[in-house]
Every structure is written in structure tokens, then in C-alpha cells.
Design a protein around this nucleic acid. Sequence first.
DNA 1: ATAGTATATGACAGGGTTGTCATTTTTGGC
DNA 2: GCCAAAAATGACAACCCTGTCATATACTAT
Lengths: 201, 201
Amino acid sequence: MPKDTFFNLDGAKQKKIFEAAVDEFSQRRFSEASINQVVKNAGISRGSFYQYFDNKEDLYLYTLKQIGKEKLNIIGRVGELKPDADFFDGYMYMFRAALEWSTAKPEYYRIGMLMELDDSRFVSELRKASPEGFLMLKGMLEKDMQLGRIRDDVDAGLVVDIIYTLNLYLLTQYFKEDNKAELTEKAEEVIRIIKEGIVRK
Amino acid sequence: MPKDTFFNLDGAKQKKIFEAAVDEFSQRRFSEASINQVVKNAGISRGSFYQYFDNKEDLYLYTLKQIGKEKLNIIGRVGELKPDADFFDGYMYMFRAALEWSTAKPEYYRIGMLMELDDSRFVSELRKASPEGFLMLKGMLEKDMQLGRIRDDVDAGLVVDIIYTLNLYLLTQYFKEDNKAELTEKAEEVIRIIKEGIVRK
DNA sequence: ATAGTATATGACAGGGTTGTCATTTTTGGC
DNA sequence: GCCAAAAATGACAACCCTGTCATATACTAT
């Protein structure tokens, strides 16, 4: 947690530091991100930084928390908005929402992606501790299984792992191309494959 | 390419350096691997290293090449061994072979995995330049499509991307658990899902 | 044995990183 | 205006890293 001195700062300065952190963490993985860069971008001295935060982890946690607030507001409401959508529609809704959001706040999104790619001890633990997206998908899938919409001999956890993995793949792979339409199509095709299989019947 | 001085070394010393490189590159991604570690493990001086290799890239390339020789020998013969297997059987065959190999030479396998995870410029380029596994899978799939075994409205490239991605996921995710039986089951289940879909018909 | 070549070495320069701390500056209350 | 408390600062120690280079050692062939 940031120290009091940080929260005593006026809003503009807090924001400037937050933005510098976002900038850095959206370009490099946590393990490679440099506080030197952050302080440079924020226009504060190295000494000041350590008066605000304990260390890089502290700053990272703070940054994620800030972003998390916005993120959950936008993406986390699939259940509310589409109460009786099936799993596949639910996922696509989520996917579209995430994509919109990634267009609005690409840096935030990149941080999330880099976090998934990071294999440092700290970030791995962190990821394990907050499996929101994963659990939401799993819940949706299990509901559909109970409703008999999904074959009951599949392993729900594995299916969600699969979709989660492919989701990340889609976003990383096609992120740079910046072609929302094409990306959405790919996602739909992926879902259709998971849903129907690829074998000719 | 390593310098002449390296190839002039007696076999044992070459091997020791190779093994030190394997050790390092199987623990850290290329971008994070340290030559200091390599020279320490190999028991040579820093100066000597640069008498043998231009730099870290040079050593990495050499290491991959050495490993590649063995790898292709074991895994790359799916076509020969199972000439009329379908795509799914072919994949599972490959998967099992890869798994066997990863048990025999876990360090080599880890290097491959870390390479997939690396996003440094150099490694990305390198990966693009040698898409053996990817192309083999794609070839097998296209053959099956021509034979009418696969729905012809699916995008072969995408399907292979999916399987490739999930393959990597399976191996990274369950690597540490070291439970071959369970891992193989998961792979089979993944393939079954891709093949049949998960929706109740 | 000697001369010349090939190889081995570690100190070095120059770059990066983090976290600390004595000192200076700013701020706010009286 | 003054003073104490809070905040800002950058130099510093300590630790990484890479690639070079002058020097020392070993080898080889005459």
C-alpha cells in the first residue's frame, strides 16, 4: 500500500505518478519495468518515489487496483446485463466489452496482457489471487451445464481454461493489427469451434 | 555462429559450455539469461567466452541448433510413422512423443517453452523463421479437409493456431506437476472438444 | 630450446538497476 | 515573520549486466 505521503499529495500529482506507472507497466512486464523510468516520466525524484511507495511491487499493486476499479465496472456486469444468455453469448458479450474497453484504454489493457504473460513469482501469485474473469466464465458454464445446454461429460474447469487461454491468444496475437472487426470474427469462429467441433458429421 | 576457437576446443570443453548454456537458457528467458551465469557454470573466464562466441545471441543460436538436431529426429517424423493417421490422432501422437522427450530432456523442453514465451525482438524473429511444428500440423489438417474428414467451413490456420496455443498451455500449465498420465488425458479431452464441440446436440 | 601462434584471463569502462539517507526546500499554523 | 513538521532531492552504496583489451600462459612446430 502506498504511504500516507502519497495520499497527501494533491490529486494532479497523484494522477501524474499513476499515469507514469501506467505508461511503464504497459510497455514492460512487471519484472522488467524500471522505477527509474517511472520517476523520470512523472517528473519526480527517485527519493520522492520511495517516500510514496515501498517499492515496485507496491506501485504495481496500486496501479492494478486503480485500473481494476474501472475494469470491473465495464466488463464485470455480464451477468446483470444478459441474465439468461447462454455461455457462448455471454462470452462474446464479454469479449466485445473487453475489446471496446481495450480501444478506449489500450494502455490499461496492455498491462493486463503483460500481467498474464509475466512469470515472475510475484505476478504469478498475484494472478492466482484474483481469478475474477476465470470464475465468472466458470459460473456461466456450470449454469449452462445444469440447464442441459452443455454436454455433461465435459470438464467445466478445462473448458474455461481453454477459452481463457484462447482469449488471451486472440488479444495478444491480433492486438497490434488493431482490426476490431476481424478480431471479433476470429473470436466468433473460435467459439463456434468450441461449441460445435470441427469434425464433419 | 561460434568462432573457430570454439570448434577448436576439445569435445569435453565444448560440451561443458553447451551444458552450461542449456542450464541457463532453461531457467531464464533469452532476454533475461546471463552470460555471467554461463561462464560461471562452465568454469571458463568471461574473456574466453567472447573468444568463442560473438555474444549471447550467438550462444543461443548455437544451443538451439544443437537441440534442434535431436528434437527433429524424435518428434518430426509423425508423417512417416503414421502415414494415414487423421489430424487428431496425428496430433496426439506428436503430443505423446513430445511428452516423452520432455521427460527425457526436460531442460531442452523448457528452453523451447521459454522461447515461446519470450517476446524480445530477437526471439520473436527467430520463432517466425522456424515454424516447423506449426506447418506440420497445418499440413495434416489440410489433408484431412481434402479428405472430407473436417468441415470445410473452418479456417485451417485458425484451428492450428488454436491447437498450438492450447498445446503450449497444456505443457506450461501442467509441466511442473510432472503427471504424464493426467496431462495426456487433458490433451485428449482438449482434442475431443475441438473435434466434437461441447454443446449437447 | 626457441619463436611464433593460439588460447586464457580478469580488470576495466560504461551501462543498467534498487533502496537509503543526510540535506535542503516547502508548507502551514501560530 | 517564524518555526516545526512534512516533503523533495540527488548523491551514494551495492549490486547486476555486457563487451573489450592488454597481458599472461600454453601449445606447436622447427
